[in-house]
Each structure stands twice: as C-alpha cells, then as structure tokens.
Measured scan of single mutants.
Amino acid sequence: TTYKLILNGKTLKGETTTEAVDAETAERVFKEYAKKNGVDGEWTYDDATKTFTVTE
C-alpha cells in the first residue's frame, strides 16, 4: 500500500511517499524521515487517503 507524508515544517515543506504493509509501518518510516530532516510537530493521519501530515 502506498502512504503519503505531507511536511508542513517551518523551513521545509513538501511531500513524499512510501510503500508499507500497514499504517503503523509507514508512520515509523515517515517519523524517521521527518526527524532526519529536522521537522518535529503535530502528526495527523487520514485513513481514507492514507496520508500523514506533520505540522510545525
């Protein structure tokens, strides 16, 4: 399944996708990605669109 991440950081904005077996796995991948890019904020997930959003 393809999951999407929307980054709404103070200095970094953008989108990325990952293939994962479930939302929990995708969330771990995306949180590591955000951490590596210095983005830390509020996380939300929309199951209907398989989209995570992190907003600083």
Rank of each mutant, 00 (worst) to 15 (best):
T1R: 11
T1E: 09
T1K: 15
T2Y: 07
T2E: 13
Y3I: 01
Y3K: 00
K4H: 08
K4D: 01
L5Q: 00
L5F: 11
L5I: 05
L5K: 00
I6V: 08
I6L: 15
I6H: 06
L7H: 06
L7E: 02
L7N: 02
L7R: 01
N8W: 08
G9T: 15
G9R: 04
G9D: 03
G9W: 15
K10N: 13
K10A: 07
K10V: 14
K10S: 14
K10E: 13
T11L: 14
L12Q: 11
L12C: 05
L12S: 11
K13T: 15
G14I: 14
G14M: 14
G14F: 13
G14H: 15
G14L: 15
G14C: 05
E15N: 03
E15R: 04
T16M: 11
T16D: 04
T16N: 05
T17V: 14
T18V: 11
A20P: 02
V21D: 12
D22T: 09
D22M: 04
D22N: 15
D22G: 05
D22I: 04
D22E: 11
E24L: 07
E24N: 09
T25H: 07
T25Y: 07
T25S: 11
A26Q: 00
A26I: 02
E27T: 06
R28C: 04
R28N: 14
V29D: 07
V29R: 10
V29L: 15
V29Y: 10
F30G: 00
F30Q: 00
F30H: 01
F30T: 00
K31H: 12
K31E: 05
E32G: 05
E32R: 06
E32C: 04
Y33S: 02
Y33W: 12
Y33M: 06
Y33D: 02
Y33C: 03
A34L: 07
A34H: 01
A34G: 04
K35L: 15
K35F: 08
K35H: 14
K35N: 14
K35A: 10
K36H: 06
K36E: 15
N37W: 09
N37Y: 14
N37V: 08
N37A: 12
G38L: 14
G38M: 09
G38D: 13
V39C: 04
D40S: 12
D40T: 10
G41R: 01
G41W: 10
G41T: 02
G41F: 03
G41K: 01
E42C: 04
E42T: 10
E42S: 14
E42R: 06
W43S: 01
W43R: 00
W43N: 00
W43L: 03
T44Q: 12
T44I: 11
Y45S: 01
Y45W: 05
Y45E: 00
Y45P: 00
D46T: 13
D46I: 06
D47M: 14
D47N: 10
A48T: 11
A48S: 13
A48R: 10
A48Q: 11
A48N: 10
A48Y: 13
T49V: 13
T49L: 13
T49G: 04
K50A: 08
K50L: 12
T51L: 06
T51H: 03
F52I: 01
F52Y: 12
T53A: 06
T53D: 03
V54F: 05
V54M: 08
T55Q: 10
T55I: 11
E56D: 11
E56W: 13
E56T: 04
